[in-house]
């Protein structure tokens, strides 16, 4: 960690990176950027740079993991060794294993897994650069990758965190705020179903602050959700209806 900054929020209520309390970092989304994947997405959320790819529905390997009544979703969240300040060993850490699990559980409720029995779908998430809130950005990208792969879903899953920095509830913490701040509440959400599919917290919050943080995070999710839909449209609107022209 770098030198601990004196103040994370100045007198005018502006944060270290110039944002207001309820302001998101700039989010850029792109769909279908990996030619070999069935579906893929790239997200830049502030300085986070994350790739997500979906493969499937395809035969399960190893076979005994397949289920007779549904498709199996597998997720792997992985950070590149160069994605953080000090080199991260490429071997999966306990944190990455936990995050892979919670990310999978956040995406599962969105999918109609029963449509493809005996198959599997793999989601691979590679964090190329991390700057706080990678699990949320990963979920946002992974859900887009699944949509791009054409897996039937109830809704897109979008995620965003809120937290507490210097006694103030703020939206979308970046790295320094996450480390020095007093709490972080990542939330994944399906806006059309009002369904929270991931909720974690560390730090300390009073019940009132927690309530505020959850609704602030959901507010952030709704904004990113619009960008997600836009990103899908951008890819699929560009495809020209060639065959129809020829007929």
């Amino acid at each position: 960690m770098n030198e601990k900054p004196e103040k994370l929020i100045n007198k005018k209520g502006i944060r270290l990176d110039g944002r207001k309390a309820d302001e998101l970092r700039p989010v850029k989304l792109e769909v279908g950027i990996l030619p070999n994947a069935d579906g893929s997405a790239y997200i830049e959320h502030g300085k986070n740079k994350i790739l997500a790819a979906a493969f499937g529905p395809r035969e399960m390997h190893p076979k005994h993991l397949s289920r007779p009544d549904r498709m199996v979703l597998r997720c792997r969240y992985h950070m590149a060794p160069f994605s953080v300040g000090e080199r991260k060993s490429p071997a999966p850490s306990r944190r990455e294993i936990e995050l892979s699990k919670v990310i999978r559980e956040s995406l599962e409720p969105s999918l109609f897994l029963e449509y493809y029995p005996r198959t599997g779908v793999d989601v691979f998430i590679e964090v190329l650069q991390a700057d706080g809130g990678t699990r949320c950005a990963s979920i946002t990208a992974a859900s887009l990758a699944l949509a791009d792969a054409g897996i039937p879903m109830r809704d897109l899953v979008v995620a965003c965190a809120a937290g507490k920095v210097e006694d103030k509830v703020v939206l979308d913490l970046f790295d320094t705020e996450d480390k020095v701040g007093s709490a972080d509440v990542p939330v994944a959400f399906m806006p059309n179903l009002n369904a929270v599919t991931l909720l974690q917290m560390d730090g300390q919050l009073t019940p009132d602050e927690f309530e505020k943080a959850v609704s602030m995070a959901i507010g952030g999710c709704r904004k990113i959700y619009e960008l997600q839909k836009e990103a899908l449209k951008t890819k699929y609107m560009l495809i020209e209806p060639e065959e129809e022209d020829e007929e």
Binding site: V102, E108, L199, Q200, M201, G203, L205
Partner: peptide, 26 residues
């Protein structure tokens, strides 16, 4: 913690909660 403040949360299993259910649950 001792003061009744929340210090850790983990949602688990492949299902979901509505926002209202989370507050009710808390």
């Amino acid at each position: 913690n001792n003061e009744g403040n929340i210090c850790a949360i983990q949602k688990g299993c492949p299902g979901y909660f509505t926002q209202q259910q989370i507050i009710e649950g808390m």
